[in-house]
Design a protein around this nucleic acid. Structure first.
Lengths: 342, 342
DNA sequence: AAACGAACCGAAAAGGTTTTCTGCGATCGT
DNA sequence: ACGATCGCAGAAAACCTTTTCGGTTCGTTT
């Protein structure tokens, strides 16, 4: 049980004036000394720096931004309740910013447009220097508009407005990668169990798969099966598939969860994986992929790299360059036992 | 492909001076009018407010904090790579702060102590008014120390230092809840498949289970089985268990993933769930729980509530009250088909 | 010796807001 | 009618840092 005590946290943090006094110079000189400006004698600079260290002086960023007009903060607006996507993206962004002097304000709009509007305003009130908006899926989303005083980069879910700058994973090439891998591991009768057809990601991945097969002079062994993103769908679809096309030897599933369901169904039907059928998923979601039987080959969307790039684009935009358009980023395949060549 | 354009984002935001000018008063009066101070004529106040709205004035928080000494920001430091825990906690905290005027800086230390130290310093440089530290598990972690100028609240993973303030889920009562639910659904021969015994969470949950059974005049039908937190362990443990104690009619698993493995094993052994054996997990991890067969009863750790409370404690601490000790918060059981009474 | 330039330092303004204190006109009490 | 009080508005200081610009002290040049 917690017990409220009395307690003070007063502790005036050292100011530049203190440093100056200790070093026996004016604040102006102290400032110049610490900021590497010239016009200050090396010896004096040394004295100032020592003084600063001694009283562990840290410049007050409020005072700095008051002058400079920039706060060194960016707002990261997510809509991803589960955190599957936004957290790695955030980490990538933080990485890219971290080296520089930028800090990240985070808030979650929970997919609600008016809450989002509210958070945008809150960030603007805080005078952030820019925004990163993370969507909950890869479908285009409404733009925040162009009347914002700072640049915006959309990550994962692109803006509907093509003059905005968006960074998304390349789902078409992800589909290609999947199909090529199936072919490369010696399979020829390949089926595709997709997700919810209303999602662009589902359609893009399908497009990639179909294209890659065509390029290799073949095609899907059965019509694309659309459904939901769940394990349950993976199971039903797989059962139906094996009934209709028993000779199938490769199943590409549009998500790890679908693949997981597919694996379960195959096991129950006594179909050995990867010997008779190879299975492959998308997202490389550690929790789903690692524990599946056998471990699942999956396409990793490189979220962290996505975040890093979004951060870089934002930084560039903040210093004048403006980017526009949807930038599609490469993904990578992580091979595991479920598609091992036999 | 993105194409860099030229582009400017200049746009001087309105200042209080502008408002004052427009309303024909001094900045002092304008300030008082907007902040609800008295000493200003109602009519004047009205004029000022209208002016402020007209040019959509927003006070500059840098200027405000320069005076007030508080920035209205808190630092949230996570260590949870997966985001399973920290994101809901963050959302709860944001909720609790949101109404007030607090914004959240987020950063991830990735479980690395020196990176953490670095982020703490960065937050202090930003003059945050407080910290929330989110652990990666419920084991006590090193304190950030007491020489910080602002209060700290530890969430999920408590501080080793009992004079710090920590908020954690009550894993003992979680264990009790699990056992009681098993009993309440008519099972008597109950086993416990736990996780990694080096985790406090595993031991606490065990303690609760054992205590609740004892209170009901019974005990575990087999010694606690410790292993890892994975599905694989859930499967092996369950198989071993059924071999040694075929009459078991309830399996409490210390995590959803273990439970998931257990369900798989049972299905493969042809043991009907929930008819012959009930299965229960911990964490209520949507992705794992929803798609399992049958849907898994689980103990929800109430992360969001944890985050909210942490935020409240922090706010209280920031205004002088000081809390100390580890505060254990109630959890709740979410009943699903895997433990349905037969 | 006078003038000049270089090197270095400090005073002051600026950035936007809040708060205190002073000032002023009007109202009140007697 | 006079001082006291009240209601309201504005001037100025304070918060902390950066930057510009003027000033001082040297050493150097003619």
């Amino acid at each position: 049980m917690a017990a409220p005590n009395s307690g003070r946290y007063a502790r005036r943090t050292a100011t530049l004036r203190d440093v100056a006094a200790l070093a026996g110079v004016s604040v102006a000189t102290a400032s110049k000394a610490l900021n590497g400006r010239d016009q200050v004698h090396p010896e004096t600079r040394e004295r100032v720096i020592e003084a600063a260290i001694k009283i562990s002086f840290r410049p007050n960023p409020m005072a700095q931004s008051l002058i400079g007009g920039r706060t060194g903060t960016v707002g990261l607006l997510t809509n991803d309740l589960v955190g599957r996507f936004s957290l790695p993206i955030l980490m990538g962004a933080e990485d890219a910013f971290g080296a520089g002097r930028l800090s990240v304000f985070l808030s979650d709009a929970r997919g609600d447009a008016i809450r989002e509007q509210h958070h945008v305003q809150a960030f603007l009130d805080r005078r952030v220097d820019g925004f990163i908006v993370v969507g909950s899926d890869t479908d285009p989303r409404p733009s925040l508009g162009h009347d914002l005083p700072v640049p915006v980069v959309y990550a994962y879910g692109p803006s509907e407005d093509p003059t905005d700058s968006s960074i998304v994973p390349d789902n078409v090439s992800a589909g290609e990668l999947a199909a090529e891998h199936m072919l490369a591991t010696g399979r020829r009768r390949i089926a595709l169990v997709s997700g919810d057809r209303t999602f662009l990601a589902a359609r893009d991945r399908t497009e990639g798969v179909v294209a890659a097969l065509a390029a290799a002079g073949t095609e899907l062994v059965a019509p694309v099966m659309y459904g939901s993103w769940s394990e349950g769908w993976g199971r039903t679809a797989t059962r139906a598939l094996l009934e209709r096309v028993p000779e199938v030897d490769g199943i590409i599933c549009a998500s790890d969860q679908i693949a997981r369901g597919s694996l379960d169904a195959l096991r129950e039907l006594g179909v050995p994986v990867p010997e008779r059928v190879g299975v492959l998923g998308f997202d490389n979601w550690e929790a789903v992929v690692a524990d599946s039987r056998p471990p699942l080959t999956s396409i990793d969307m490189n979220f962290e790299a996505l975040g890093r790039l979004a951060a870089q684009r934002l930084v560039a935009a903040m210093s004048g360059e403006r980017f526009s358009g949807v930038e599609k980023r490469p993904v990578r395949l992580v091979a595991r036992a479920s598609t091992a060549r036999v």
